[in-house]
Design a protein around this nucleic acid. Structure first.
Lengths: 342, 342
DNA sequence: CTGAAAGCGCTAACAA
DNA sequence: TTGTTAGCGCTTTCAG
């Protein structure tokens, strides 16, 4: 495999000159550049990323720290769309994206990537209450962007939706439709996203004079199966809800399956609202009313922010909130009149 | 950031001794190992991947060459599940996975990854007729595994389904249900997977005395929208098909949407069979009959094979075919009696 | 405008 | 069992 020395020899210059041509330094004559480029071409030279990285201390790659529950990550269209957004800006900016898939703990994996100099910065997905990963990131002082917001004060930059407000809006929609027994079906209860959405849901209830009932709040895991199980629990209680707000579309799908199996009509017997508005929401039967959170845009903004931090070489403590809107379809019994923007 | 020298100094040994401890060389005394490990711990040392890679010439990472149509890749649950399989074995074996997302051409990207020593081998997704990427891989003689099979003779290893047979089976199912006008809705026509599936479809027709009609074969792109458009075309022809085999579930979803919009009942007026059996197939309305190709297993086998090539340090020219079965649900009008295994 | 030389952090002979 | 040394391929002062 051709090295910079080979190119130098062929072009009759020194390795440093080749290096300068590679960096397109203005202090090299056009004539020389031409000659070097010809040699580059002829040998089909590609710089060794190791050697370069060793001296520049930069990798040209960003990392994604996959959560321990990799299943929930890969299988959920939310993340696929988010990743598509990330990949899109990575492509534009010519950086690689590396997936962290490690069997070690999250902290270890983070160290592996950052201290091991495999990536210039990391994207984190979803925080938990007093999340140790966030502490480690703070300690490392490395470029990092969190999808979601940290539960506790943290210097990290993040990209998020206003989940509290979004859940509030969705719940108000259900209240306006006349529902009073409204359930909440969420993901793991220590996830900040769950905390925020349940908070918005409760607030809406309170603001409309409905006392929140803890038995109506169930937390599960972000898989179709999780929705199925959660909905089964919700529908089993004596004074069952007439409407359920699901913190994820995949959860809502599972919930719908459970409802159908039990013989409930959606939306006739049970109104359902989802979250995220994945593409398939429209194709469900009935088409799912859902809170659109703009997953692709979340991905784009996450990556852009991270790349900016990397460029600046330091944490920026920037926060961006991506807008959301309620997309009304048929699963909640309302007449779909388009979207309600907030 | 602590280097190997810092550790050596702290442990009162030479850097090479530390290096040996890191590699767990048996020629180091337990006593020394203990001391070094304590130092490692204390400094929270993580080896610099660049420095190590520069000398060992190996990266501890595998690459995925994302196809030019990144959209179709990320958004299709098929790939998500496949990637989950890949990530699972990557995690087990402690290697990172890097996504290639480059705005250069595919060849350039491949060179960037392999010649640039960013990964030890690559996973390729889907081949086309006389695919230049396969030529480049052959030239590079690097570890590589193709998802799908090459159209032309090639030394590359691959993991695939028997797509011809699978499409044959699905078509026969439709024929047995009494259909004679059967359409085929596929992806890009120069994709080998499309070629194989259309071939199986035609063969089944021929074997049952039905003359294939070119107007009944339409090729589109692997997105819901592609299915919608393709189905619109199929249903517009005068002697329209009574059944359609779709080469992808997402395509089938789009097709179903088109059918509904035009007022056709599925399966009453139009039988539909999909391909891949993504999770949502079960949730569609009506639940989609589909050819299960075991995406996750395809991912696992792809990664395992690649890792083996990397270990051996050379192309193995191994071929693995993952089984498939037809999962009969409600979109084709048959009574769902479970799966037909082949 | 270009070259020589040092050094990034690590591993792997070769010595001891 | 351990240390010394050279060198992986590149960038970057510092000279010229």
């Amino acid at each position: 495999m051709a090295t910079i020395k080979d190119v130098a020899r062929l072009a009759n210059v020194s390795p440093s000159t080749v290096s300068r041509v590679l960096a397109n330094s203005p202090r090299i004559s056009e004539e020389t550049k031409r000659r070097v480029r010809a040699a580059l071409e002829q040998l089909n030279y590609h710089p060794n990323a190791f050697a370069r990285g060793l001296v520049t201390n930069s990798t040209g790659a960003i990392g994604i720290l996959i959560p321990p529950s990799a299943q929930e990550f890969f299988v959920n269209p939310f993340f696929a769309e988010w990743m598509a957004g990330v990949a899109e800006v990575a492509r534009q900016r010519g950086v690689d994206t590396v997936l962290s898939t490690s069997s070690r703990g999250e902290i270890e994996t983070l160290d592996h990537m950052i201290r091991g100099r495999r990536v210039d910065g990391v994207l984190l997905i979803g925080a938990r209450k007093s999340d140790p990963v966030l502490h480690e990131v703070a300690k490392l002082r490395c470029p990092a962007v969190l999808l979601g917001r940290p539960a506790d004060p943290s210097p990290i930059s993040w990209v998020n939706n206003d989940n509290r407000r979004a859940a509030y809006d969705a719940t108000v929609h259900l209240l306006n439709l006349g529902h009073r027994r409204i359930g909440f079906l969420g993901g793991a209860s220590d996830l900040v996203v769950t905390i925020d959405r349940v908070a918005g849901y409760r607030q809406a209830l309170l603001d409309h004079g409905v006392e929140p009932d803890p038995r109506l709040e169930v937390s599960s895991f972000f898989l179709e199966q999780g929705g199925y199980l959660g909905m089964m629990r919700l529908l089993a209680i004596p004074d069952r809800p007439s409407a359920v707000l699901c913190a994820d579309d995949v959860l809502a799908f599972g919930g719908m399956r459970a409802a159908h199996e039990l013989g409930f009509e959606v939306p006739g017997d049970l109104a359902i609202v989802g979250f995220n508005d994945i593409r398939l929401a429209e194709l469900a039967h009935p088409a799912l009313t859902s809170v659109r959170v703009h997953m692709h845009e979340l991905g784009v903004r996450s990556a852009e922010l991270l790349l900016e931090e990397i460029e600046q070489g330091k944490p920026l403590q920037r926060h961006v909130t991506v807008h959301h809107e309620l997309v009304i379809r048929y699963s909640c019994g309302a007449k779909p009149i388009g979207t309600m923007t907030t």
